[in-house]
Design a binder for these strands. Sequence first.
DNA 1: CTGAAAGCGCTTACAG
DNA 2: CTGAAAGCGCTTACAG
Lengths: 337, 337
Amino acid sequence: MPAISRPTSKDVAQEAGVSQSTVSLVLGGKWSGRVSPATARSVRSAAERLGYRPNQAARNLRLGTTRTVLLMVPTLTAPFFGPVYTGAARVAARHGFGVVVSTWPDDAAGPADSPFAAPDEAIDGILASSMAVEALGRFRGTPAVMLDSGPAGRPGAPVPTVDFGVADGMREIAAHLAALGHRRIGHVAAAVDQWTFHARADALAGAVAGLPGGVLTRSACAIDVASAKGAATRLLTAPDPPTALVCDDDLIAAGAYKAARALGLDVPTDVSVTGFDDVLLATALEPELTTVRLPAEELGAQGMAALLALLDGRAPAPLVLPGELVVRGSTAPPRPR
Amino acid sequence: MPAISRPTSKDVAQEAGVSQSTVSLVLGGKWSGRVSPATARSVRSAAERLGYRPNQAARNLRLGTTRTVLLMVPTLTAPFFGPVYTGAARVAARHGFGVVVSTWPDDAAGPADSPFAAPDEAIDGILASSMAVEALGRFRGTPAVMLDSGPAGRPGAPVPTVDFGVADGMREIAAHLAALGHRRIGHVAAAVDQWTFHARADALAGAVAGLPGGVLTRSACAIDVASAKGAATRLLTAPDPPTALVCDDDLIAAGAYKAARALGLDVPTDVSVTGFDDVLLATALEPELTTVRLPAEELGAQGMAALLALLDGRAPAPLVLPGELVVRGSTAPPRPR
DNA sequence: CTGAAAGCGCTTACAG
DNA sequence: CTGAAAGCGCTTACAG
């Protein structure tokens, strides 16, 4: 508790020689035509002199809002989270909103047991990331926007959506590999029941099917290095193995690198490897990883903008943020057989 | 805005047939000796029936608190941030507190331009991570706890602290390398003016100085792969190069790997490499990285516990959380000359 | 153009 | 043991 209590609108009123309501009107920007410009000026200067900041609790109580938004993410430890939060918080702050975070796997335990029970109860809206639409049921009645939860713009989508263009990104990877001469593609797929991974799988399957002589094999794994290494090994040790491994995630690609090395295969001379997301890891690997950059911070920012629009009574259109193919050293023409 | 307005304590009072003040007393846990047990029971059951949740805005206004804590971190995108936030938020929620986040490099721009200007103004306390004590000046008057900002327990430290035992961690690394037979050690140091890196450098210097025949060389770099690769290259191409590279950070170690490979040196046969932190990257690298695990989530949790104690009028003792040496495949005996 | 007043939902002396 | 009342700092009709 600060030693000196903060000035209130009453203090400003006294300083400016007007009533408290006038101060509220002026500082709330609702004075034009109701307060003389001269009075408005003197109120503003008094507020500045005193360093006045409105008390949010009082404002919230009066208005019945909290100016707080809940961001729900699958996990706080994935590198994906930081940028999404950053983007969302930046846009929120610009409108005087705060952002609190919750992870959704904990939800099964119910609100009482949830580590975020407290802020949960005083929220104006929800930004739910990488979450099945159905899981939003618990919050029916609270304005929500879904991020990375596709399919964007699906008819009858219950809430506005912002998604990555993962299908296009995957098609770019396929086209890049095809141009290098690859025909036998192995998909090291994330065994995670999220829209984004289904979309990636479908896009890749479609692209390879459209490739003359294209052959797709697939092995699924959890999103961790050890599991990915196992899945990649299965692909690479099958008869007639793929010449390129398309991985659903940069971390999975790291596992693919390990599988290749353990089999005595060089990346990219013996086998090409691609990732997805472009996190820090992508350039820490050797060779650096060809991958698709997903604008995570932009996802948070656009999602928050959509939620604020929704709170404002508007209906934001579904939005798709394109990924960008980043070609680095992990892809090369296949070794001639 | 939900269609049906939430029940208030007045509704509970009506349902239970008592006054609103009695409801407040009972639900606030201040009833013993003032309200009969039977009445308390009926209030509680009425509250449950109605699904009553106290309005935090009203509570905050009345009490003059916000039940919100600000967590300041250097950057949101480092893998360090997620776990710290998680730990802090978990403990905070248990006490009905929320956590908002801010990055401190932005502070130079001043509160008005800060992306977190809004929550900034209504905060009960501050958790400042990896920040020079002096930089806290702006918040003088607000209760604060410093994380990873050492030196812990320094006489006259202005605020309670929670730190990692980085010096001990670094000594463990030195002892591990010494036991393997290394004498010529290269320090790939983070050129970042934070306490933790000064402590690491000092501890390593001391340990090598205490080693018969020990020789320490050093090269500084930014915490990114390319810069680290350059610094490691300088060390490895010097006359009489080190047989082990001690890196201030796992990401720097990734750069050291690249430097070694570019010079045709194998890790760990030709050169041993160690990291610090044990982030996801450590096991994604090939070979997996010997490093010191820092309990980041615990740092957030203990820091929040200390801040809550401070808010409660107690003076938490300085706390040091030990790191743990994790030996993996990147260290081995030096090649005999 | 300006001010007095009500009321948001709580907590906490105070009176019975 | 219980209740009526004040008041936290705002916003917004309402009256002049």
